[in-house]
Design a protein around this nucleic acid. Structure first.
Lengths: 192, 192
DNA sequence: CACTGCATGTAATTTGTTACATGATTCA
DNA sequence: TGAATCATGTAACAAATTACATGCAGTG
């Protein structure tokens, strides 16, 4: 039964916090979980259908078309089982670092752009995380769960801050490299 | 021609640093590039074959079976083209944070384990990066490329250090949560 | 001569993404 | 009534992993 365990975990987990529609599930995964997890649209409904067949989630059709999905007791047990399994590490694929690694072929200016963009992304991410933190802290319905969620928010914040610090360092290094590359660029030397 | 651009980039890039066999390429990607990039074994040879058909790499068969792959001038041009394309961001999939997010279902003790393992992984990673840094700094054949490679090493170091800092913080929080969870665990209170 | 490591490849399967198709509800 | 958003799903395609199959070279 080791098929799409990871997707099942995410879906069951999200529904364990509160029942919702598949659409809301997707929004949730895009916003809150999105900082460290992603599911593509085309996976959520098949996963829900599969979970329903296994009686791990229940669907309550409300009025027209739309349905509300909730975890069953068996689903909760399954979730605990899945969470207890060792997390399989995602193979890293960092396009920015790949490009920087071969930066000599790309030139210092382009590299600076990449790093600057990375920095801006981290700043945006930090702002989003701040908003997420505030939301979680303000939601009394989460109860004890809030502490755990804030742990993951904090992980994102640490990571974003470290990305910013690295970017600043890298930009300084790249400035140096660019300067070495064209030592006689202006009419005069000096720092101005 | 937007097929497996990413893999092509990694393969061409690695070969641009120095020509090598497919096997060595794999080792390279596992060790040096491995900190932020991964290619599965089954992708490298097909990618090489494809690149050869496009005259982007050249194969020099040496003695028995094994061949040495080198980038052609056209390949170098292609590499520059690929590097100039905007990096496509990898969808994040952090199994540890996913589990922590639903930590209430898992319990504080299990969460502590996860975080401790994460911390240890980061410590190991930091050590590996230190070794990689020393290797790069000691290799005079890399020339200007070394500066760019060190930039990526530095990114890894920043990220590992931030992971350690986060883990320490998280462990403290989890201790607190565990204590709250069973307020009357021993025969007496106090810190022992 | 058996074992380990180097080396090259293929096939089957699983996963994941993207685009498409459809329809209800809400609001201007 | 038209547009935007909510909502559910499918099919085709692209990518990635894994396991398998093969053989040479050096070494104890």
């Amino acid at each position: 039964v080791a098929r799409s365990d990871q997707t099942q975990t995410a879906v069951l987990g999200a529904l364990s916090i509160r029942p919702m529609t598949g659409y809301a599930l997707r929004e949730q995964i895009l916003s809150t979980l999105g900082h460290f997890w992603s599911e593509s649209f085309g996976q959520i409904y098949p996963a829900l259908a599969q979970l329903e067949r296994q009686d791990l989630v229940e669907r309550k059709v409300s009025g027209s078309g739309s349905s509300n999905f909730a975890v069953t007791p068996a689903g909760l047990a399954r979730l605990r089982e899945l969470l207890a399994e060792p997390p399989q590490v995602a193979k890293p694929r960092n396009g920015v670092l790949l490009r920087l690694f071969f930066g000599r072929q790309l030139g210092p200016e382009r590299c600076r752009e990449l790093v600057r963009e990375r920095r801006e992304a981290a700043v945006r991410s930090l702002a989003e995380l701040g908003r997420a933190r505030a939301e979680v802290e303000a939601d009394p319905s989460l109860g004890e769960q809030a502490d755990y969620i804030l742990l993951t928010v904090s992980a994102g914040e640490h990571s974003a801050r470290s990305a910013i610090a690295w970017a600043d360092e890298a930009l300084a290094t790249l400035d140096q490299l660019a300067a070495d590359h064209r030592p006689a660029d202006g009419t005069r030397g000096g720092t101005r």
